[in-house]
Simulated assay, not measured.
Amino acid sequence: MSISSSPDSSALNSSRAPEPVGLYPHARRVGNLLFLSGVGPRQRGEKHVPGVELDEDGNILRYDFERQCHAVFQNVRYIVEEAGARWEDLVDVTVFLTNMQDDFSTYNRLYAEYFAGAQPCRTTVEINCLPTPIAIELKCIAWVGER
């Protein structure tokens, strides 16, 4: 994890999570709170999204939503752990889905498995699209401090 500091906050970039698609850090720590930028299911060093099949124009033909969920949870874990927190330290999760009707039940089932021991606050919203051909993105806040 690389850290660039200012007097009251630190920008953090994971060495395991996918590279950001814009000019922003993976997370920023302010005091004992860790604010994650939107995290998707891509894998570090790859442009291809796990479980996504595109046509020659870059339009989504098919996607494996469950595979994307597992990948996005893993990416969040990478960032949180490299910043010195634990999965159980997540306190708030905002979920962006591009197809609530088809994907929410799968997301809800997997979320219950991943968060069985820790139950952060959660908001789930449907959006028209995301900046890359993904069906899910998470925006999270975690506690980083004394346990």
Rank of each mutant, 00 (worst) to 15 (best):
P18G: 02
Y107M: 12
D8S: 15
K139D: 11
L61E: 15
L90C: 03
R147L: 11
R77M: 11
T98V: 11
A11C: 13
V76R: 05
N59Y: 12
H26Y: 00
I136S: 03
L12A: 05
F115L: 08
G84S: 07
R122P: 04
T94M: 04
R29W: 10
V72R: 00
Y78P: 05
I3K: 12
E56Q: 08
E126Y: 09
F96V: 00
R122Y: 03
P20H: 03
G51F: 06
F65R: 00
N75F: 01
R109H: 15
V72S: 06
R67D: 04
T124V: 15
D103G: 04
F65W: 03
S4Y: 15
V52P: 00
A71T: 02
F96D: 00
R67C: 04
T106M: 12
S37P: 10
R29E: 14
L23A: 15
N59L: 11
Y114K: 10
H70S: 08
N32G: 12
P133Q: 02
E146N: 08
V125R: 14
G38S: 09
T98D: 06
P50E: 05
T123H: 07
Q101Y: 11
Q74S: 12
L61K: 12
R62H: 15
P25M: 06
A85D: 04
I134W: 01
L130I: 04
F35M: 10
E81S: 07
V21C: 12
F104S: 05
T98L: 07
Y78S: 07
R28S: 12
G117L: 09
N59V: 08
E146K: 10
G117V: 05
W87Q: 01
V80I: 13
P25Q: 08
A112Y: 00
Q43M: 09
N59E: 13
E46W: 04
P133R: 01
V52R: 00
T106V: 15
A83Q: 04
I79H: 03
N13K: 12
H26T: 00
Y24S: 13
P120F: 01
E113K: 11
V144P: 02
P7F: 10
H70A: 09
A71L: 02
C69S: 03
D8F: 15
V144L: 14
T124H: 02
Q119C: 14
P50I: 05
V80Y: 02
G117H: 11
R16P: 02
H70N: 10
I127R: 06
E88A: 12
F104G: 02
H48G: 05
P20C: 07
L138Q: 02
W87C: 00
G51D: 04
V76D: 06
N99L: 10
A135E: 00
Q101R: 14
V49S: 00
Y78M: 07
I136P: 03
G45W: 01
E126K: 09
S14E: 07
H70L: 12
Y24T: 11
H26S: 01
R77I: 10
Y114C: 09
R122E: 09
L23R: 13
Q43H: 10
S4H: 13
E137L: 01
